[in-house]
């Protein structure tokens, strides 16, 4: 279990480095998707198919959209030399994150060890024990998302709606001149 976690983590780190450093836009897009699929495999090993199914479909859509947007748009990559001070800041940040990570990982539970099993008063225990009696939904994740914590789902839907309205307003074909213009309603 621990070896698989290490291999997965190494794969995701390598894919992320390739995504940043490669000169090819298509290769960068595919590397970003590889990082996402690595996290999906981690979710499956944590026995969370409900969490894993959303990233799978979203990764596929984002991959298609990004390939379509990068291949046909004729975008150019910017290749520049990093200054010495930038390297210094990067190395210092990496060292700080590494040292802080060693301290943080000492206090975390082991990979795949749920917090519910260790803390008796965890709120998740109440969801698991009384979710079926309260809501009647056998899928506890959906019961939490749409009954106990439906406010969070409403916020998520609002974020999506706002971003779609912004994208439609920016990417439409022509601006509206007058309300009486017959061509104004065309997309």
């Amino acid at each position: 279990m621990l070896e698989l976690t290490g291999v997965l983590l190494l794969f995701m780190v390598m894919a992320a480095i390739i995504a940043i450093e490669t000169k090819d836009l298509l290769g960068a897009v595919i590397s970003v998707t590889a990082v996402g699929f690595g996290s999906i495999i981690a979710f499956f090993y944590l026995r969370a198919p409900d969490v894993a199914i959303v990233p799978i479909v979203v990764e596929v859509v984002v991959l298609v959209i990004l390939i379509r947007a990068t291949l046909r748009a004729g975008l150019k990559t910017f290749i520049g030399n990093r200054p010495f001070f930038g390297y210094l800041v990067t190395v210092a940040l990496l060292v700080v994150i590494f040292l802080a990570g060693i301290r943080v990982f000492g206090g975390l539970p082991a990979f795949g060890d749920p917090v519910v099993a260790r803390i008796p008063d965890a709120p998740a225990r109440a969801y698991i024990e009384s979710g079926l009696e309260d809501t009647g939904a056998t899928n506890v994740v959906t019961a939490v998302l749409l009954d106990y914590r439906a406010y969070d789902t409403l916020g998520e839907a609002t974020v999506l709606f706002t971003s779609i309205v912004g994208a439609v307003a920016i990417l439409r074909r022509k601006a509206r001149k007058k309300p009486s213009d017959p061509e104004a309603d065309e997309w």
């Binding site: 198919p49 409900d50 479909v57 939904a137 899928n139 994740v141 959906t142 998302l145």
Partner: peptide, 15 residues
């Protein structure tokens, strides 16, 4: 079947 099996509105909508 989002309330019975894994899935739900978001995943189904993307599909």
């Amino acid at each position: 079947f989002g309330h019975i099996t894994p899935g739900g509105g978001f995943a189904g909508g993307v599909i």
